[in-house]
Design a protein around this nucleic acid. Sequence first.
DNA 1: ATCACTTACGGGTGACGTAAAAATC
DNA 2: GATTTTTACGTCACCCGTAAGTGAT
Lengths: 283, 283
Amino acid sequence: MIELYLLEQLDAFHRYGTLSAAAEHLHLAQPSLSRSMQKLEAILGVILFERQKNRLTLNKTGILAAEYAARLLDNAVEMERRIHLFDKSLHTLTIGSCAPGPLMKILPPVTGAFSDFTISSTIESEELLLQGLRTAAYQLIILSHPIKSNDIVCQEYLTEHLYLSVNTFHPAAIYHSIKFEQADGQNFIMYAKVGVWEQIVRNKMPNARFLKQEYLDAVGELANSSDLPSFSTNITMEELPSRKTNRVNIPFSDKEAQITFYLIYLKENTARFKRFLSTINQE
Amino acid sequence: MIELYLLEQLDAFHRYGTLSAAAEHLHLAQPSLSRSMQKLEAILGVILFERQKNRLTLNKTGILAAEYAARLLDNAVEMERRIHLFDKSLHTLTIGSCAPGPLMKILPPVTGAFSDFTISSTIESEELLLQGLRTAAYQLIILSHPIKSNDIVCQEYLTEHLYLSVNTFHPAAIYHSIKFEQADGQNFIMYAKVGVWEQIVRNKMPNARFLKQEYLDAVGELANSSDLPSFSTNITMEELPSRKTNRVNIPFSDKEAQITFYLIYLKENTARFKRFLSTINQE
DNA sequence: ATCACTTACGGGTGACGTAAAAATC
DNA sequence: GATTTTTACGTCACCCGTAAGTGAT
């Protein structure tokens, strides 16, 4: 069987036109290439080059061979890439959620239970999440509504409540609860990746403006250093205790301010998740 | 770059299940395979096997890799095959004819003029010849009628006359010419690959029977040792002088007993054939 | 005891580098 | 003189085989 290193060298010669140039790019000495090309002809039993004293050129067969070689090398590289990708997928758990809250909540126990896996997580639209679950881009997704399907398992996870988060001097700080309507028209600091929450607050407070922050840290810091209102939830208050210091959190009383999230995964992955998810729900 | 010999060994292990069996088929010692498989994992940076003390099995990644390997190896052999084929085509001149006469006539000068080529020739139906010319299966074809086309060159070659060939005791031996009608109803010895001639004699002598001989030699010998009539032509008489000894050759006088043949090749091959074909016609 | 895999050791092929020569620009 | 190819020669890597060891059936 012909070996790939020879085809690599042929390909390089084809690309760069001379043995010297090819050798340069391959980090080899020219004589090695000269010999390799002779060897290639011997192995194939075919003349690939026209030889002048000072010049080596591919003949028609040589050009054809070089083109085939390039294709084969591409295939080889692609093969390696796919093997790596597949292997990685076997050791990676990708979780997608339509909101950051339940993700925050689930990541610690997941990293614990799947300690030999790389955990990767994303906030994404519900539509793409469901697609991604089918294409194995996600192994576990979190949606704001249940899914019924033969090949899917769906279980209720938790309910998140939205709060208005203001500093103590804010006029609303004295309320025990508030309606979206009352909070409308202000400028809010908002984390950029709040997922489904964004449509809700935009719909319910059509006159409000939202200053989106890409980084979660920045949201907290900005909120503390400015008088602008922001949002928090039962989950963020639990997971990020700093959200409670120096801030007053007032629950929105509208029914839209509560979302129940569902854990969803393919039935074929049941064995993988069952034990873990049962412990989750016991908490 | 990963080398193909490693993939061959992986493929063999995948096929045969154990290192020993694979080694047997590859004509290698087991330890070599054992090391190669370890090396493969090292190169790819991926675990391909599950190792028990006494047993080696491919894991999921390993199976995937073996499947890719098989594909890549297939591609490699296919590539070699195509290169050989292409190279061969560059040094092979394939001539197809719809009748053996003009082929006999043209082969000697062709082999002389293209002495560094392998000459390959076939008798084939006119339809397939024309197809083959387009697909480069033939570089030169000989048909019984001219072809007009933008990308094709066509030139008249020669005219062949059909003769009835009988021994001296045959009743027809006294004629100077004969019509198909007069010869009908007899049993003829006929070469199997007479191409277009076959339809002609069958049409013009519907009551005759034809004893087809695969080998040209057999036709001559049978004709000499039996009293059965056979066929000859101005060309066979010239190229195969034995056809004239002890036989009487009587020309058929019907117009269908004459065929003019045409040399036909692709315009792109003009440079290749022009000089040669001009010398041919001067004779 | 046989089979299957791994590790250890030694050998020979061959892939590569350096040096030098020939030829062209 | 600079560049390009080829040949010659030495070296080192590495691929393979043999031998020996371990564990399983």
